[in-house]
Design a binder for these strands. Structure first.
Lengths: 228, 228
DNA sequence: ACTATTAAATAGGGATCGCTATTTAAATGG
DNA sequence: CCATTTAAATAGCGATCCCTATTTAATAGT
Protein backbone atom coordinates (compact mmCIF):
# COMPACT_ATOMS: atom_id res chain seq x y z
CA UNK A 1 0.00 0.00 0.00
CA UNK A 2 2.96 2.28 0.52
CA UNK A 3 3.98 3.82 -2.72
CA UNK A 4 7.74 4.08 -2.75
CA UNK A 5 7.55 7.24 -4.78
CA UNK A 6 10.89 8.90 -4.78
CA UNK A 7 10.55 12.58 -4.41
CA UNK A 8 12.92 14.98 -5.94
CA UNK A 9 16.13 15.72 -4.18
CA UNK A 10 18.69 13.69 -2.40
CA UNK A 11 17.26 10.74 -0.49
CA UNK A 12 17.65 10.42 3.25
CA UNK A 13 20.47 8.23 4.35
CA UNK A 14 18.90 7.41 7.73
CA UNK A 15 15.35 6.24 8.25
CA UNK A 16 13.42 8.43 10.66
CA UNK A 17 12.20 5.60 12.86
CA UNK A 18 15.58 3.89 12.90
CA UNK A 19 17.01 7.13 14.20
CA UNK A 20 14.35 7.30 16.91
CA UNK A 21 15.05 3.71 17.89
CA UNK A 22 18.75 4.44 18.29
CA UNK A 23 18.09 7.64 20.18
CA UNK A 24 15.57 5.93 22.41
CA UNK A 25 18.07 3.29 23.35
CA UNK A 26 20.78 5.79 24.15
CA UNK A 27 18.49 8.05 26.16
CA UNK A 28 17.24 5.08 28.10
CA UNK A 29 20.68 3.90 29.08
CA UNK A 30 22.26 7.27 29.79
CA UNK A 31 19.33 9.55 30.54
CA UNK A 32 18.55 12.85 28.89
CA UNK A 33 21.32 14.84 30.49
CA UNK A 34 23.82 12.00 30.19
CA UNK A 35 23.38 11.69 26.44
CA UNK A 36 25.16 14.26 24.28
CA UNK A 37 24.26 15.17 20.74
CA UNK A 38 27.69 13.87 19.78
CA UNK A 39 26.73 10.48 21.26
CA UNK A 40 23.55 10.54 19.24
CA UNK A 41 25.04 11.54 15.91
CA UNK A 42 27.82 9.02 16.31
CA UNK A 43 25.42 6.18 17.10
CA UNK A 44 23.22 7.12 14.16
CA UNK A 45 26.18 7.54 11.83
CA UNK A 46 25.24 11.05 10.82
CA UNK A 47 26.57 14.55 11.26
CA UNK A 48 25.10 17.19 13.54
CA UNK A 49 23.24 19.18 10.87
CA UNK A 50 21.44 16.04 9.74
CA UNK A 51 20.25 15.37 13.27
CA UNK A 52 18.91 18.89 13.57
CA UNK A 53 17.24 18.86 10.17
CA UNK A 54 15.58 15.55 10.99
CA UNK A 55 14.57 16.11 14.60
CA UNK A 56 14.79 19.83 15.35
CA UNK A 57 16.69 19.81 18.61
CA UNK A 58 17.92 17.51 21.32
CA UNK A 59 14.81 18.11 23.38
CA UNK A 60 12.51 17.55 20.42
CA UNK A 61 14.38 14.37 19.54
CA UNK A 62 13.87 13.19 23.10
CA UNK A 63 10.15 13.87 22.86
CA UNK A 64 9.91 11.97 19.60
CA UNK A 65 12.06 9.09 20.83
CA UNK A 66 9.93 8.74 23.96
CA UNK A 67 6.71 8.88 21.99
CA UNK A 68 7.99 6.37 19.45
CA UNK A 69 9.26 3.90 21.99
CA UNK A 70 6.66 4.34 24.70
CA UNK A 71 3.64 4.30 22.45
CA UNK A 72 4.70 0.96 21.04
CA UNK A 73 5.06 -0.58 24.49
CA UNK A 74 1.99 1.15 25.84
CA UNK A 75 -0.13 -0.33 23.09
CA UNK A 76 0.80 -3.82 24.20
CA UNK A 77 0.51 -3.04 27.90
CA UNK A 78 -2.83 -1.29 27.58
CA UNK A 79 -4.13 -4.29 25.74
CA UNK A 80 -3.07 -6.47 28.64
CA UNK A 81 -4.41 -4.10 31.26
CA UNK A 82 -7.75 -3.39 29.69
CA UNK A 83 -8.55 -6.93 28.67
CA UNK A 84 -11.53 -8.83 30.00
CA UNK A 85 -9.33 -10.68 32.47
CA UNK A 86 -9.90 -10.21 36.17
CA UNK A 87 -8.21 -7.00 37.19
CA UNK A 88 -5.78 -8.77 39.46
CA UNK A 89 -4.60 -11.01 36.64
CA UNK A 90 -4.44 -8.13 34.16
CA UNK A 91 -2.38 -6.13 36.62
CA UNK A 92 -0.04 -9.05 37.17
CA UNK A 93 0.60 -9.53 33.46
CA UNK A 94 0.99 -5.78 33.03
CA UNK A 95 3.69 -5.68 35.67
CA UNK A 96 5.37 -8.82 34.39
CA UNK A 97 5.56 -7.28 30.95
CA UNK A 98 7.37 -4.29 32.40
CA UNK A 99 9.72 -6.61 34.28
CA UNK A 100 10.57 -8.34 31.03
CA UNK A 101 11.20 -5.05 29.28
CA UNK A 102 11.21 -4.75 25.57
CA UNK A 103 11.34 -7.92 23.50
CA UNK A 104 14.54 -6.86 21.82
CA UNK A 105 17.74 -8.44 23.07
CA UNK A 106 19.53 -6.86 26.01
CA UNK A 107 17.26 -3.91 26.24
CA UNK A 108 17.06 -2.30 29.64
CA UNK A 109 14.40 -3.84 31.86
CA UNK A 110 11.65 -1.83 33.40
CA UNK A 111 9.85 1.23 32.15
CA UNK A 112 11.70 3.89 30.21
CA UNK A 113 9.59 6.68 31.63
CA UNK A 114 9.43 5.60 35.25
CA UNK A 115 12.84 6.95 36.25
CA UNK A 116 13.41 9.47 33.46
CA UNK A 117 14.53 13.02 34.28
CA UNK A 118 13.72 13.06 37.98
CA UNK A 119 16.46 15.29 39.27
CA UNK A 120 17.62 17.74 36.64
CA UNK A 121 19.30 21.04 35.89
CA UNK A 122 16.97 24.03 35.86
CA UNK A 123 17.41 24.43 32.13
CA UNK A 124 15.80 21.01 31.63
CA UNK A 125 12.67 21.73 33.63
CA UNK A 126 10.43 21.48 30.58
CA UNK A 127 11.72 18.00 29.76
CA UNK A 128 11.13 16.95 33.36
CA UNK A 129 7.59 18.28 33.18
CA UNK A 130 6.97 16.13 30.15
CA UNK A 131 8.18 12.90 31.72
CA UNK A 132 6.29 13.70 34.92
CA UNK A 133 3.14 14.13 32.86
CA UNK A 134 3.72 10.77 31.20
CA UNK A 135 4.11 9.15 34.61
CA UNK A 136 0.92 10.77 35.84
CA UNK A 137 -0.89 9.53 32.74
CA UNK A 138 0.28 6.00 33.46
CA UNK A 139 -1.07 6.25 36.98
CA UNK A 140 -4.39 7.55 35.71
CA UNK A 141 -4.58 4.61 33.34
CA UNK A 142 -4.12 2.24 36.25
CA UNK A 143 -6.67 4.15 38.28
CA UNK A 144 -9.21 3.94 35.48
CA UNK A 145 -8.75 0.18 35.37
CA UNK A 146 -9.19 -0.07 39.12
CA UNK A 147 -12.29 2.12 39.00
CA UNK A 148 -13.69 -0.28 36.47
CA UNK A 149 -12.93 -3.10 38.86
CA UNK A 150 -14.93 -1.32 41.54
CA UNK A 151 -17.81 -0.77 39.16
CA UNK A 152 -17.83 -4.42 38.23
CA UNK A 153 -17.81 -5.53 41.83
CA UNK A 154 -14.28 -6.87 41.80
CA UNK A 155 -13.16 -4.42 44.47
CA UNK A 156 -14.93 -2.98 47.51
CA UNK A 157 -16.68 0.27 46.71
CA UNK A 158 -14.71 2.16 49.32
CA UNK A 159 -11.39 1.25 47.66
CA UNK A 160 -9.01 4.19 47.33
CA UNK A 161 -8.22 3.54 43.68
CA UNK A 162 -6.07 6.64 43.36
CA UNK A 163 -3.70 5.56 46.11
CA UNK A 164 -3.76 2.01 44.80
CA UNK A 165 -2.72 3.26 41.36
CA UNK A 166 0.06 5.36 42.83
CA UNK A 167 1.20 2.34 44.82
CA UNK A 168 1.57 0.18 41.73
CA UNK A 169 3.08 3.14 39.93
CA UNK A 170 5.67 3.24 42.70
CA UNK A 171 6.29 -0.45 42.14
CA UNK A 172 7.02 0.22 38.49
CA UNK A 173 9.37 3.01 39.45
CA UNK A 174 11.14 0.92 42.06
CA UNK A 175 11.46 -1.97 39.63
CA UNK A 176 12.87 0.30 36.96
CA UNK A 177 15.35 1.82 39.37
CA UNK A 178 16.52 -1.62 40.46
CA UNK A 179 16.74 -2.66 36.83
CA UNK A 180 19.13 0.25 36.30
CA UNK A 181 21.21 -1.26 39.10
CA UNK A 182 21.31 -4.58 37.28
CA UNK A 183 18.37 -6.56 38.63
CA UNK A 184 17.25 -9.42 36.37
CA UNK A 185 13.61 -9.91 35.46
CA UNK A 186 13.29 -12.96 37.71
CA UNK A 187 14.14 -10.86 40.71
CA UNK A 188 11.76 -8.15 39.55
CA UNK A 189 8.96 -10.66 39.22
CA UNK A 190 9.48 -11.89 42.75
CA UNK A 191 9.13 -8.30 43.82
CA UNK A 192 5.92 -8.02 41.83
CA UNK A 193 4.53 -11.10 43.52
CA UNK A 194 4.99 -9.44 46.87
CA UNK A 195 3.41 -6.22 45.61
CA UNK A 196 0.40 -8.17 44.42
CA UNK A 197 -0.30 -9.40 47.93
CA UNK A 198 -1.35 -5.83 48.67
CA UNK A 199 -4.24 -6.23 46.24
CA UNK A 200 -7.39 -5.47 48.22
CA UNK A 201 -9.53 -8.20 46.72
CA UNK A 202 -6.91 -10.82 47.23
CA UNK A 203 -7.01 -13.47 49.88
CA UNK A 204 -3.71 -13.87 51.58
CA UNK A 205 -1.91 -16.89 50.17
CA UNK A 206 -1.42 -19.74 52.61
CA UNK A 207 1.78 -18.78 54.30
CA UNK A 208 2.38 -22.34 55.27
CA UNK A 209 1.42 -24.56 52.42
CA UNK A 210 1.24 -27.92 54.11
CA UNK A 211 1.80 -29.02 57.65
CA UNK A 212 0.62 -25.70 58.92
CA UNK A 213 1.66 -25.46 62.51
CA UNK A 214 0.12 -22.07 62.93
CA UNK A 215 2.96 -19.94 64.28
CA UNK A 216 0.67 -17.52 66.10
CA UNK A 217 1.68 -14.34 64.39
CA UNK A 218 0.98 -11.54 66.73
CA UNK A 219 -0.92 -8.66 65.18
CA UNK A 220 1.70 -6.14 65.91
CA UNK A 221 0.33 -2.75 65.12
CA UNK A 222 -1.10 -0.60 67.81
CA UNK A 223 -2.81 1.74 65.45
CA UNK A 224 -2.20 5.33 66.35
CA UNK A 225 1.00 5.06 68.30
CA UNK A 226 3.14 7.41 66.36
CA UNK A 227 5.61 8.71 68.85
CA UNK A 228 9.25 7.84 68.24
CA UNK B 1 36.92 19.47 74.52
CA UNK B 2 37.23 21.24 71.20
CA UNK B 3 40.11 23.60 71.37
CA UNK B 4 39.41 26.53 69.10
CA UNK B 5 43.08 26.85 68.47
CA UNK B 6 43.69 29.04 65.52
CA UNK B 7 46.33 27.60 63.35
CA UNK B 8 48.69 29.71 61.44
CA UNK B 9 47.64 31.04 58.13
CA UNK B 10 44.52 32.56 56.73
CA UNK B 11 41.34 31.11 58.20
CA UNK B 12 38.75 29.36 56.07
CA UNK B 13 35.89 31.55 55.01
CA UNK B 14 33.49 28.62 54.56
CA UNK B 15 32.90 25.88 57.07
CA UNK B 16 33.47 22.43 55.68
CA UNK B 17 30.15 21.00 56.81
CA UNK B 18 28.21 24.03 55.72
CA UNK B 19 29.68 23.53 52.28
CA UNK B 20 28.63 19.89 52.30
CA UNK B 21 25.13 20.85 53.39
CA UNK B 22 24.79 23.29 50.51
CA UNK B 23 26.24 20.82 48.04
CA UNK B 24 24.00 18.07 49.30
CA UNK B 25 20.95 20.20 48.81
CA UNK B 26 21.92 21.15 45.27
CA UNK B 27 22.86 17.62 44.25
CA UNK B 28 19.59 16.34 45.64
CA UNK B 29 17.49 18.78 43.70
CA UNK B 30 19.38 18.70 40.42
CA UNK B 31 21.18 15.39 40.46
CA UNK B 32 24.89 14.80 39.97
CA UNK B 33 24.98 15.50 36.26
CA UNK B 34 22.52 18.37 36.54
CA UNK B 35 24.65 20.26 39.06
CA UNK B 36 27.64 22.16 37.71
CA UNK B 37 30.66 23.24 39.67
CA UNK B 38 29.62 26.80 38.86
CA UNK B 39 26.26 26.13 40.56
CA UNK B 40 28.11 24.80 43.58
CA UNK B 41 30.63 27.59 43.94
CA UNK B 42 27.95 30.20 43.45
CA UNK B 43 25.70 28.63 46.10
CA UNK B 44 28.60 28.37 48.54
CA UNK B 45 29.81 31.88 47.80
CA UNK B 46 33.31 30.76 46.93
CA UNK B 47 35.53 30.62 43.87
CA UNK B 48 36.45 27.47 41.98
CA UNK B 49 39.93 27.01 43.45
CA UNK B 50 38.50 27.10 46.96
CA UNK B 51 36.05 24.35 46.09
CA UNK B 52 38.82 22.19 44.74
CA UNK B 53 41.17 22.84 47.63
CA UNK B 54 38.42 21.99 50.10
CA UNK B 55 36.83 19.00 48.40
CA UNK B 56 39.20 17.72 45.73
CA UNK B 57 36.90 17.34 42.78
CA UNK B 58 33.23 17.36 41.85
CA UNK B 59 32.98 13.61 42.27
CA UNK B 60 34.75 13.68 45.62
CA UNK B 61 32.50 16.49 46.79
CA UNK B 62 29.51 14.39 45.80
CA UNK B 63 30.83 11.46 47.81
CA UNK B 64 31.38 13.64 50.85
CA UNK B 65 28.04 15.39 50.50
CA UNK B 66 26.24 12.05 50.27
CA UNK B 67 28.10 10.64 53.23
CA UNK B 68 27.49 13.76 55.28
CA UNK B 69 23.81 13.97 54.55
CA UNK B 70 22.96 10.30 54.38
CA UNK B 71 24.83 9.27 57.47
CA UNK B 72 22.91 11.81 59.53
CA UNK B 73 19.57 10.55 58.28
CA UNK B 74 20.61 6.93 58.42
CA UNK B 75 21.51 7.25 62.06
CA UNK B 76 17.98 8.32 62.88
CA UNK B 77 16.39 5.77 60.58
CA UNK B 78 18.52 2.90 61.78
CA UNK B 79 17.54 3.76 65.31
CA UNK B 80 13.90 3.51 64.30
CA UNK B 81 14.37 0.33 62.33
CA UNK B 82 16.47 -1.54 64.82
CA UNK B 83 14.51 -0.61 67.90
CA UNK B 84 12.76 -3.15 70.05
CA UNK B 85 9.45 -2.35 68.43
CA UNK B 86 7.66 -5.05 66.49
CA UNK B 87 9.19 -5.20 63.02
CA UNK B 88 6.00 -4.13 61.32
CA UNK B 89 5.80 -0.99 63.42
CA UNK B 90 9.50 -0.25 63.05
CA UNK B 91 9.17 -0.60 59.30
CA UNK B 92 6.17 1.70 59.23
CA UNK B 93 7.95 4.42 61.17
CA UNK B 94 11.05 3.96 59.03
CA UNK B 95 9.04 4.51 55.87
CA UNK B 96 7.09 7.41 57.36
CA UNK B 97 10.36 9.08 58.25
CA UNK B 98 11.45 8.85 54.63
CA UNK B 99 8.12 10.22 53.49
CA UNK B 100 8.61 13.21 55.76
CA UNK B 101 12.11 13.82 54.46
CA UNK B 102 14.61 15.83 56.35
CA UNK B 103 13.41 17.95 59.21
CA UNK B 104 14.66 21.11 57.60
CA UNK B 105 12.10 23.30 55.88
CA UNK B 106 11.22 22.58 52.26
CA UNK B 107 13.75 19.88 51.83
CA UNK B 108 12.97 17.38 49.12
CA UNK B 109 10.88 14.47 50.39
CA UNK B 110 12.00 10.91 50.06
CA UNK B 111 15.44 9.38 50.11
CA UNK B 112 18.34 11.19 48.52
CA UNK B 113 20.03 8.00 47.43
CA UNK B 114 17.02 6.11 46.15
CA UNK B 115 16.85 7.80 42.78
CA UNK B 116 20.39 9.14 42.52
CA UNK B 117 22.45 8.58 39.35
CA UNK B 118 20.38 5.81 37.81
CA UNK B 119 20.84 6.59 34.15
CA UNK B 120 24.13 8.32 33.48
CA UNK B 121 26.85 9.15 30.99
CA UNK B 122 29.59 6.56 30.70
CA UNK B 123 32.08 8.93 32.26
CA UNK B 124 30.03 8.90 35.46
CA UNK B 125 29.91 5.13 35.86
CA UNK B 126 31.96 5.21 39.04
CA UNK B 127 29.54 7.62 40.70
CA UNK B 128 26.65 5.40 39.67
CA UNK B 129 28.41 2.39 41.16
CA UNK B 130 28.71 4.22 44.44
CA UNK B 131 25.04 5.16 44.68
CA UNK B 132 24.02 1.65 43.62
CA UNK B 133 26.16 0.27 46.42
CA UNK B 134 24.48 2.58 48.91
CA UNK B 135 21.08 1.39 47.72
CA UNK B 136 22.13 -2.22 48.06
CA UNK B 137 23.39 -1.51 51.57
CA UNK B 138 20.01 -0.06 52.48
CA UNK B 139 18.31 -3.18 51.23
CA UNK B 140 20.67 -5.38 53.20
CA UNK B 141 19.86 -3.36 56.29
CA UNK B 142 16.18 -4.01 55.77
CA UNK B 143 16.87 -7.69 55.12
CA UNK B 144 18.85 -7.99 58.34
CA UNK B 145 15.93 -6.53 60.27
CA UNK B 146 13.54 -8.95 58.61
CA UNK B 147 15.85 -11.88 59.30
CA UNK B 148 15.80 -10.85 62.93
CA UNK B 149 12.01 -10.85 62.77
CA UNK B 150 12.13 -14.42 61.48
CA UNK B 151 14.51 -15.42 64.26
CA UNK B 152 12.24 -13.92 66.86
CA UNK B 153 9.19 -15.65 65.49
CA UNK B 154 7.53 -12.55 64.12
CA UNK B 155 7.64 -13.87 60.57
CA UNK B 156 7.23 -17.39 59.18
CA UNK B 157 10.55 -19.16 58.84
CA UNK B 158 10.12 -19.64 55.11
CA UNK B 159 9.77 -15.89 54.52
CA UNK B 160 11.82 -14.66 51.57
CA UNK B 161 13.38 -11.78 53.44
CA UNK B 162 15.59 -10.79 50.53
CA UNK B 163 12.67 -10.24 48.21
CA UNK B 164 10.74 -8.56 50.99
CA UNK B 165 13.62 -6.15 51.54
CA UNK B 166 13.86 -5.41 47.83
CA UNK B 167 10.12 -4.83 47.78
CA UNK B 168 10.24 -2.20 50.49
CA UNK B 169 13.36 -0.81 48.85
CA UNK B 170 11.31 -0.41 45.70
CA UNK B 171 8.68 1.40 47.73
CA UNK B 172 11.30 3.85 48.92
CA UNK B 173 12.48 4.36 45.35
CA UNK B 174 8.95 4.81 44.05
CA UNK B 175 8.14 7.23 46.85
CA UNK B 176 11.27 9.23 46.16
CA UNK B 177 10.54 9.37 42.46
CA UNK B 178 7.01 10.59 43.10
CA UNK B 179 8.39 13.12 45.56
CA UNK B 180 10.53 14.47 42.73
CA UNK B 181 7.29 14.91 40.78
CA UNK B 182 5.83 16.93 43.63
CA UNK B 183 3.97 14.42 45.82
CA UNK B 184 3.35 15.63 49.37
CA UNK B 185 4.16 13.47 52.37
CA UNK B 186 0.50 12.77 53.08
CA UNK B 187 0.14 11.13 49.70
CA UNK B 188 3.36 9.22 50.24
CA UNK B 189 2.09 7.92 53.56
CA UNK B 190 -1.11 6.67 52.01
CA UNK B 191 1.10 4.80 49.57
CA UNK B 192 3.10 3.36 52.45
CA UNK B 193 -0.06 2.16 54.15
CA UNK B 194 -0.91 0.16 51.06
CA UNK B 195 2.61 -1.23 50.89
CA UNK B 196 2.37 -2.35 54.50
CA UNK B 197 -0.61 -4.56 53.68
CA UNK B 198 1.90 -6.74 51.85
CA UNK B 199 3.54 -7.50 55.17
CA UNK B 200 3.50 -11.28 55.58
CA UNK B 201 2.59 -11.33 59.22
CA UNK B 202 -0.34 -9.07 58.71
CA UNK B 203 -3.89 -10.28 58.94
CA UNK B 204 -6.39 -8.95 56.43
CA UNK B 205 -9.54 -7.69 58.16
CA UNK B 206 -12.21 -7.08 55.50
CA UNK B 207 -12.46 -10.60 54.14
CA UNK B 208 -11.03 -12.81 56.84
CA UNK B 209 -12.59 -11.04 59.82
CA UNK B 210 -11.87 -13.67 62.39
CA UNK B 211 -14.60 -13.66 64.96
CA UNK B 212 -12.21 -14.28 67.83
CA UNK B 213 -11.64 -11.94 70.66
CA UNK B 214 -9.13 -10.24 68.39
CA UNK B 215 -10.06 -6.57 68.14
CA UNK B 216 -9.90 -6.51 64.32
CA UNK B 217 -6.70 -4.68 63.61
CA UNK B 218 -6.93 -2.18 60.82
CA UNK B 219 -3.82 -2.60 58.71
CA UNK B 220 -4.71 0.14 56.26
CA UNK B 221 -4.93 2.61 59.05
CA UNK B 222 -6.18 6.06 58.33
CA UNK B 223 -3.42 7.22 60.58
CA UNK B 224 -1.43 8.33 57.55
CA UNK B 225 -2.90 11.79 57.47
CA UNK B 226 -1.31 13.60 60.34
CA UNK B 227 0.07 16.84 59.12
CA UNK B 228 0.17 18.16 55.61
C1' DA C 1 22.67 18.14 -20.31
C1' DC C 2 20.69 21.47 -17.34
C1' DT C 3 17.81 23.12 -13.60
C1' DA C 4 15.35 22.49 -9.39
C1' DT C 5 15.05 20.24 -5.21
C1' DT C 6 16.39 17.98 -1.23
C1' DA C 7 19.76 16.35 2.06
C1' DA C 8 24.35 15.43 3.04
C1' DA C 9 29.18 16.91 4.90
C1' DT C 10 32.52 20.65 6.31
C1' DA C 11 33.75 23.66 9.54
C1' DG C 12 33.19 26.13 13.39
C1' DG C 13 30.62 29.65 16.93
C1' DG C 14 29.37 30.95 21.48
C1' DA C 15 28.66 29.11 25.81
C1' DT C 16 29.65 26.18 29.45
C1' DC C 17 32.01 22.12 31.32
C1' DG C 18 35.45 20.55 35.16
C1' DC C 19 39.58 22.23 36.72
C1' DT C 20 44.18 24.89 37.74
C1' DA C 21 48.66 27.97 37.54
C1' DT C 22 49.46 32.08 39.56
C1' DT C 23 48.95 35.87 42.44
C1' DT C 24 47.06 38.26 46.47
C1' DA C 25 45.12 38.40 51.25
C1' DA C 26 44.90 37.22 56.14
C1' DA C 27 46.22 34.95 59.95
C1' DT C 28 50.32 33.35 63.58
C1' DG C 29 55.25 33.00 65.48
C1' DG C 30 59.34 35.15 66.36
C1' DC D 1 58.41 44.66 62.52
C1' DC D 2 59.24 40.58 59.29
C1' DA D 3 58.92 35.79 57.96
C1' DT D 4 56.05 31.90 57.60
C1' DT D 5 51.92 29.63 56.77
C1' DT D 6 47.52 28.97 54.99
C1' DA D 7 43.68 30.13 52.05
C1' DA D 8 41.53 33.34 49.27
C1' DA D 9 40.70 35.65 44.44
C1' DT D 10 42.13 36.43 39.51
C1' DA D 11 42.29 34.78 35.23
C1' DG D 12 41.95 31.43 32.06
C1' DC D 13 42.98 26.47 29.95
C1' DG D 14 41.52 22.65 26.98
C1' DA D 15 37.50 20.03 26.19
C1' DT D 16 32.93 19.51 25.37
C1' DC D 17 28.22 21.32 25.24
C1' DC D 18 24.17 22.28 21.73
C1' DC D 19 23.62 24.11 17.48
C1' DT D 20 24.24 26.40 12.62
C1' DA D 21 26.00 29.11 8.29
C1' DT D 22 27.83 27.45 4.33
C1' DT D 23 29.10 24.38 0.86
C1' DT D 24 28.83 19.98 -1.57
C1' DA D 25 26.40 15.71 -3.13
C1' DA D 26 22.57 13.10 -4.96
C1' DT D 27 18.24 12.63 -6.81
C1' DA D 28 13.94 13.96 -10.22
C1' DG D 29 11.86 16.71 -13.88
C1' DT D 30 12.46 18.90 -18.44
Amino acid sequence: MEKPVRKRGRPRALDHDVGLEIASRLFWERGYEGTSTADLTKAMGINPPTLYSMFGSKEELYRQALEFSVSRENRRRLEILQSSRPTYEALRLYLYDIADGDTQPDRPRGCMVATAVLQHAEENASVARMTAALREASIQTLKARFDRAVDEGELPVQTDTDTLARFYGAIVQGMSAQACDGACNTRLKRLIDVALTAWPGKERPPETAVGDNAPSVQPVSIAGSHEL
